[in-house]
Design a binder for these strands. Structure first.
Lengths: 412, 412
DNA sequence: GGCAAATAATTCAATCGCTGAACAAATACC
DNA sequence: GGTATTTGTTCAGCGATTGAATTATTTGCC
């Protein structure tokens, strides 16, 4: 729900420094080893004099720090390496999901510095109560972060549903939420983060979107365009194009669960027919594997499926193959449309990837014209559970890296 | 997450002026009536002094000219309106299609200043010969443009196929081309355009992409995110997101014709099964309408279909309804995935839109969860035939508007 | 007709940030 | 120990923006 498309405003005198601060800081963040000022000068095209001045600002604002000189061969004065500061601004990530609440803190380097998970069935809980509990957890997280020298500069909340531009949760079907005004509800609690120019105090976003952002910023750096699919009860996708999340016109992109894979097939609760969710959603797989009667809680169904598949259970294997095939049909369509070369299976799919990937790849190979020239990679997510919370916190931290001027203006 | 269209490289001292030139020129291009310098100052946030200086550069470079003062009420010195110059740089658009060659010239304002179409069946013609003919047509176009005070600064070639980054046409199935090195073949002819820094002399792109760009820049301005579908023998789509064409990782996005709509359905020449093209491609519609025996040339099949449908022919109506339904299934998937609110039917579909739109909309309404909150518009393209050539020429002209500094450096 | 108000556009000294070259610092190699 | 080499800093110069003052041109009012 954040403004991805800031109006291309005037380039003022001061913008020059703002842009170069972001440029240099971004290079430091993207480098695989601590770059020197001279490295940055050659990499960015700025002069060493300018880089020195910019770096001085960044050091003064505690956004970067000098590290031990990187080992180097040859003569010359040794360089001083520059790394992102491990003390300074950090992002707060919040997540409300069907069966847990999660809070985490991520620093500029992308490290998770704090993580709390509270497992509970959230469906019977009123939104206000769930958020109140989340705020309580966040307060503890903030104190912990402060102890580690971190300042929370913004929060992002992940929700398994459709979110409006202003943070209104229109519909989170599996959670039972509809039209929940999250910002208003959170405003009743004391503020969790320090206000920093250019960083919204709170953004609310779809969990699939934030999990995709987490994947984008995970180490080691992966591709800048990919499809991240979160397979839970519903199936959501985060679409990352050229290093930026594509949210769609209204912010409701990624509803891959309702791609028609059998147009005259099973009716779906969305009103359509033959939606992917009916063939590759968690309930569909569990049911096809003959586990329906077990009434497993949502968070263990996936693990149980993986166990059975590991043990060679025929029903489970067949169910996973069918789900993978349906998923592959949908993914093949997406790849044909968007020409992506990487598909990441996240959420519940991550643990099932060994059985889902082969049929997905088979469908891609059969249906994607260009697959012969440039193969498509399908792999599980590198982030574990609560990927959305980590991605949410990371998205805040990345915003500081993308717009350091706001933070610097604050701290003087 | 990304900021504005921040320049990837260093922001140097001179970049300031470059960026503001583009900013001001872009505003002039986007305005619906000629803005004054004062209007531009308030719109951009720059000071009037800066705007005056920037505009002086633009006037000197013949990119804009002063128009009659716009009518205004109230006291005060009358403003001088600024409009894009009708003499100056212009783009050359080239198109090779199955049954015609097209060349056109588009100026900065988006007006088509020259247009030549040569109808012929290009399938039996060798690529080099087709391109040679195109060059001949382009030479005449350049002379005509020069007479009108226009300077061609770049060319774009539209091809119905997959194009590599370096202009190699990997595969144009309906044209019978494969691995055609277009830039090398064109290099054997004298150059068609004047070299301008920042503007490639020749780009080669998929016709669906360029037609979508044409739609993006058509007057009056439409939405900045939409799906443009070119329905010919094959079905291609151009995806415009936030005012920019999305080309995909390899530049092969938009292969909507191979989205699976009936996963176990008719085999497709792509190797897959149940691709949209088998249900909504021109041949499929013609065949379903009982016109197969007629062996109509490709360029009249669509017109004949429209005639029959207009006359109430039951077979034609049924064929169009079925094609529209298949198209709707595919489009519903795309809308679910990308959250677009506008779908433009172009190419052969434009003439058939009265019969295709209703079933497409019906499928969208049935299958898109968010359609209830924000309706999706499906409409025919505003550009007529040879939309890709016009879009190609326009894309060159647009590049001057986006990067005026190169042109200004040239003309002094 | 004359004057004041209003709006548009230009002029100009001041300032900000980048540039390029010279210089200082620190190390490896001979 | 001397020299070459690379890093980082200092500083005068310069281009572009800024903001205020100034000029230009019209409407509205007396």
């Amino acid at each position: 729900m954040s403004l991805t498309h800031a109006p291309a405003g005037a380039v003022r005198q001061g913008s020059l420094r703002e842009l170069n601060l972001a440029l240099v800081l971004g290079r430091i963040a993207a480098a695989d080893r601590p770059p020197s000022r001279a490295d940055l000068a050659t990499a960015t095209g700025l002069t060493r004099a300018t880089v020195s001045a910019v770096v001085e600002d960044l050091l003064g604002g505690r956004l970067v720090s000098e590290s031990d000189p990187a080992p180097r061969s040859g003569a010359g004065r040794p360089a001083r390496g520059l790394v992102l500061a491990e003390q300074g601004p950090a992002g707060l990530g919040l997540e409300v999901n069907v069966d847990y609440l999660a809070v985490c803190v991520v620093d500029l380097t992308g490290q998770v510095r704090h993580r709390t998970v509270h497992r509970a069935d959230l469906r019977p809980v009123a939104p206000a109560d769930a958020l109140a509990h989340l705020v309580e957890m966040a307060g503890a997280a903030r104190d912990d972060a402060a102890h580690q020298g971190l300042t929370l500069v913004g929060a992002a909340l992940a929700v398994p549903g459709l979110v409006d531009d202003d943070g209104l949760v229109r519909l989170a079907p599996n959670l039972g939420w509809s039209d929940v005004p999250v910002p208003a509800l959170l405003a009743e609690h004391p503020p969790l983060v320090e206000q920093v120019p250019g960083v919204p105090a709170l953004t609310v976003d779809n969990e699939a979107n934030l999990a995709a952002l987490g994947e984008l910023h995970s180490q080691p750096p992966g591709p800048s365009s990919f499809l991240h699919i979160s397979g839970e009860v519903g199936i959501g996708a985060g679409i990352v194009l050229d290093g930026a999340l594509f949210r769609g016109v209204r912010g409701w992109s990624g509803e891959i669960g309702h791609l028609p894979v059998h147009p005259e097939g099973r009716p779906c609760r969305c009103g359509g027919q033959g939606c992917l969710e009916q063939y590759a959603g968690q309930e569909a797989i569990v049911s096809a594997a003959g586990l329906a009667r077990a009434e497993l809680p949502a968070d263990t169904a996936t693990a149980r499926l993986a166990e059975l598949a590991e043990a060679g259970d025929a029903d489970a294997l067949r169910a996973l193959h069918e789900a993978g095939t349906a998923l592959g049909v949908a993914v093949a369509g997406v790849v044909n449309l968007l020409d992506l070369d990487t598909v990441v299976l996240g959420g519940g799919y991550a643990a099932l990837a060994p059985w889902l990937c082969p049929p997905v790849l088979a469908e891609i190979d059969a249906r994607v014209l260009t697959a012969a020239w440039s193969p498509v990679t399908v792999r599980p997510s590198t982030l574990g559970a609560e990927a959305a919370a980590v991605g949410a916190a990371g998205s805040v931290a990345r915003r500081i890296i993308a717009q350091p001027a706001g933070w610097l203006a604050r701290s003087g």
